[in-house]
């Protein structure tokens, strides 16, 4: 198979370049990540992140033939050749396919991604009814891979001010949690022309989420909650 991969080494390169590779995948190579690992045995200077190799850790997000996805969840079968691999769009490149996610995680931390509840904890645990627990489905599964935020035009133009789809999905995850008591503060924080309202419902986020989640839907629900709050 043929690949064309974005290369940049900050120590030796002034500019990124594309490098072509020829590779013969072997029998067990099913996913794009398998091919990349094999490539690494030929050219060990090629850099990318990976860990779980099964769509759980969120570290091998990249731009695959123009679309963001996880290499480990992308089947080799059906990939158009040459397979063009570039780092996540709009993120500063550290080296090759590795990007700097500092800002992405800063947005994530800004929404306080943890349960806030100042009431005295019960003896054993804070219980939820099955219906309350159900509300977290489609939200808690996010692996913070950044495929969505890095495919969002609003995030490209305002990476410092717009929280982005991943952070907003997480914000909604805690707004929906029946055990969390900070809903009003969370909503007040989001009620901002940049943080939330840069989203233009383009839905690129939902198009590319490798876990099948819908950040645009979460954003819609936050907007609705804000309307309810103010009326």
């Amino acid at each position: 198979m043929r690949l064309s991969i974005y290369r940049f080494n900050p120590e030796t390169d002034l500019k990124p370049r594309m490098q072509d590779y020829e590779l013969a995948p072997e029998a067990g190579d099913k996913k794009l990540l398998d091919a990349l690992m094999r490539l690494k045995t030929i050219d060990d200077s090629l850099s990318f992140r990976r860990s779980c190799r099964e769509g759980v850790c969120g570290s091998d997000a990249m731009n695959i033939n123009g679309r963001n996805g996880l290499a480990c969840l992308t089947p080799l079968v059906g990939l158009k050749e040459p397979v063009v691999l570039r780092p996540l769009p709009g993120f500063p490149v550290i080296r090759d396919l590795i990007v700097d996610m500092t800002q992405f995680f800063a947005h994530y931390h800004s929404i306080k991604p943890y349960l806030i509840n100042d009431t005295v904890p019960p003896e054993r645990e804070r219980l939820q009814s099955p219906a309350e627990r159900e509300k977290l489905n489609g939200l808690y599964e996010c692996i913070l891979c950044a495929c969505c935020s890095s495919f969002c035009p609003s995030f490209w133009w305002n990476p410092d001010k717009f929280i982005g789809p991943a952070g907003l999905l997480q914000a909604y995850r805690f707004i929906s949690d029946s055990r969390d008591t900070a809903t009003a503060e969370r909503l007040a924080y989001l009620d901002d022309v940049y943080r939330l309202f840069r989203c233009r419902t383009i839905m690129n986020c939902t198009e590319v989420c490798p876990k099948g989640l819908s950040p645009s839907h979460a954003i819609e629900r936050i907007r609705q909650a804000l309307v309810r709050e103010s009326s």
């Binding site: 731009n63 500063p92 383009i202």
Partner: peptide, 25 residues
């Protein structure tokens, strides 16, 4: 200094846009 000089990949012609993005553009 290196981080400030870090390149970014953001060539819109090399990104495959979903149909919703095209309607929006």
């Amino acid at each position: 200094a290196r981080v400030e000089a870090a390149p970014k990949f953001l060539n819109l012609l090399q990104i495959r846009f979903p149909i919703g993005a095209i309607a929006s553009i």
